[in-house]
Amino acid sequence: MTAPTLSTRSYGRGGLSVGPIGYGVAALGNLYAPRPDDVWPECVPAAWQAGIRYFDTAPHYGLGLAEERLGEGLRELPRDEFVLSTKVGRVLEPNPDYRPGDTDIANLFAVPATLRRRFDFSRDGVLRSVEDSLTRLGLDRIDVLFVHDPDEHEREALDGAFPALEELRSQGVIRSYGAGMNQSAILTRFVERTDLDIVMCAGRYTLLDPSAEADLLPAARERGVSVAVAAVFNSGILATDRPASTATFDYGAAPADLVARTERIADVADAYGVTVPQLAVQFPLRHPAVSTVVLGADSPAQITRNAALADVAVPGDLWAELEDSGLISRKAADA
């Protein structure tokens, strides 16, 4: 079976291109729970078969386990046919307090806590992180490096990490660099104050929270910066056709008003034969600054399902009805 051909968009200024859907592999690092040995090895092949060619990981995910497993999945695939991003800012080092049986579940990953994370946004920290990631991935190069979650380390990132990434890009070691965060304010400042060319914004440009369109997206367009949008389901409320009774929004119980709003969105979409998850994925892709949507997945079946969410064309009349009723922002269409 031949993988489907997906439309691509440019990604950064280094000649990279990506499809509408990327695969974020935090689950390969045993996010929340261990992945069975007969499940995780099939995840990357399922993504490849579905036409996904962009893979995003980080040392943070499972204390390096996600990088190791992703590298194993990609090793036999043609290197020039996929884009790989990982992150810097957390250096992994031996955990002197480890005792047999200790796990990293406090940080959401079900792995032995033999290592610990140390925030390090210095030049040396970036270079060490890149070298360690290449070793874990077992690949010859990384295409994109993101400064990861520097919320409390903005100055260190500006003074240390970004100059180091600029050095790596100018030397041809990487193609592009940027930052990945779950807020838009600091990302916007990075866009304005550095020469990054890609940002990953999680949870702040969704059907229910389009706040990034007020600052990040205009700045990105002005500076020629590509945007990858992650967490488009806002941790769960938008992941199903109708919000479940246990629906979550940004990792907490979903407020009643957002549940009601999602129900109304579902009512409108249902009349057009469209689902809420399809809308959630395609909403950010309407904005000209957005290159791709990065989705996590727990299983091969979920990866296949996610990859298909961009395939169904959402009628313009549906977007217009949602906008006219005030259920979603107009600015994506008007940007």
Results as ranks from 00 to 15, higher is better:
residue 2 T to I: 13
residue 8 T to Q: 14
residue 9 R to D: 00
residue 12 G to K: 01
residue 12 G to P: 04
residue 13 R to S: 13
residue 16 L to K: 02
residue 18 V to I: 08
residue 18 V to S: 08
residue 20 P to M: 04
residue 24 G to A: 14
residue 27 A to D: 13
residue 33 A to M: 05
residue 35 R to K: 14
residue 38 D to E: 04
residue 39 V to D: 05
residue 40 W to N: 04
residue 43 C to N: 11
residue 43 C to E: 10
residue 43 C to S: 08
residue 44 V to A: 07
residue 47 A to S: 07
residue 47 A to Q: 04
residue 50 A to P: 01
residue 52 I to Y: 04
residue 53 R to Q: 09
residue 56 D to C: 01
residue 58 A to G: 07
residue 63 L to N: 08
residue 69 R to W: 08
residue 69 R to P: 10
residue 71 G to W: 07
residue 73 G to L: 12
residue 78 P to I: 00
residue 81 E to L: 05
residue 92 L to R: 02
residue 99 R to N: 03
residue 101 G to S: 14
residue 104 D to T: 01
residue 110 A to S: 15
residue 122 S to L: 02
residue 126 V to E: 06
residue 126 V to H: 12
residue 129 S to Q: 09
residue 131 E to P: 00
residue 135 T to R: 15
residue 136 R to P: 02
residue 141 R to H: 12
residue 143 D to F: 07
residue 145 L to Y: 03
residue 147 V to R: 00
residue 148 H to A: 09
residue 149 D to K: 10
residue 150 P to A: 12
residue 155 R to G: 01
residue 156 E to M: 02
residue 158 L to P: 06
residue 163 P to H: 03
residue 163 P to D: 05
residue 163 P to I: 07
residue 166 E to T: 02
residue 166 E to A: 09
residue 167 E to T: 04
residue 170 S to F: 03
residue 172 G to R: 11
residue 178 G to R: 08
residue 179 A to L: 03
residue 179 A to Y: 01
residue 183 Q to D: 08
residue 187 L to Y: 03
residue 191 V to T: 10
residue 207 L to V: 15
residue 207 L to W: 03
residue 216 L to K: 01
residue 216 L to W: 02
residue 221 R to P: 06
residue 228 A to C: 06
residue 230 A to V: 04
residue 240 T to D: 10
residue 247 A to M: 07
residue 247 A to W: 10
residue 249 F to I: 01
residue 252 G to S: 08
residue 256 A to C: 08
residue 265 I to D: 01
residue 265 I to V: 12
residue 265 I to H: 01
residue 268 V to K: 03
residue 271 A to L: 13
residue 273 G to E: 11
residue 278 Q to Y: 11
residue 280 A to P: 14
residue 281 V to S: 11
residue 281 V to C: 10
residue 284 P to D: 10
residue 288 P to R: 14
residue 289 A to Q: 08
residue 293 V to C: 10
residue 294 V to A: 12
residue 295 L to A: 03
residue 296 G to W: 07
residue 298 D to S: 12
residue 301 A to K: 05
residue 305 R to H: 12
residue 305 R to G: 07
residue 306 N to Q: 06
residue 306 N to Y: 09
residue 308 A to K: 14
residue 308 A to D: 09
residue 310 A to N: 14
residue 318 L to W: 08
residue 321 E to R: 09
residue 326 G to P: 06
residue 332 A to V: 10
residue 334 D to Q: 14
